[in-house]
Design a protein around this nucleic acid. Sequence first.
DNA 1: TTGACATGCAACCATTTGGTTGCCTATTGT
DNA 2: ACAATAGGCAACCAAATGGTTGCATGTCAA
Lengths: 104, 104
Amino acid sequence: MDDVFKALADASRRSLLDRLHAKNGQTLNELCEGLAMTRQAVTKHLVILEEANLVTTYKQGREKLHYLNPVPIHQIGERWIKKFERGKLTALSELKRQLEKRDE
Amino acid sequence: MDDVFKALADASRRSLLDRLHAKNGQTLNELCEGLAMTRQAVTKHLVILEEANLVTTYKQGREKLHYLNPVPIHQIGERWIKKFERGKLTALSELKRQLEKRDE
DNA sequence: TTGACATGCAACCATTTGGTTGCCTATTGT
DNA sequence: ACAATAGGCAACCAAATGGTTGCATGTCAA
């Protein structure tokens, strides 16, 4: 889970996920197009995404195809974000109450 | 939004959010208890959480109270994670199809 | 078969990050 | 008044991060 959070912390990597979300199964060179980064930098980002299991690849001839795996993202939502949504309203009203108490 | 992702990337900071989720409105020293880190390190983490708007503070005398703000977490869920859940199943079946094609 | 194309590997670099120590300031209880 | 308590500030440090360049390897097409 830590891997996933770390992988998502970088805007370039999130934008790579966006690109794969728009069009799945792209090659490395395809994913490089229009980016202000060298191919090697993109490779490094993709490796981190693979290690976090956010991207799956397989080689077809000399090309390497990249597929988005949305499962870890979903798990962040289920296992982590939902925990903080329970009690969101009570936390906020508690905050409001305390902030108001400040002015007494 | 980038600030929030960056803030969430560190396990110590996520655990501070957990602590505030368990008990809201803690002081700095309270949040330090039982952690293998100096007070100053915790302060730095809390500053990052504040800048990402995940934690709100206010001073009461010589104490500084920390409150969890769950709104940015909720927004990550709404504005980011949900985007990838739409089409999750189609992405997965596409992936499966491609992986099977590999063995032909 | 050989040149062009797609990717991999490794060394290197600057900046950011996560932490420390040492000291300073402000508030509170006795 | 003053010692103890709660927190702030700044300099410093090692390691991680995000990027580069240069070169090597594997595959396809003419």
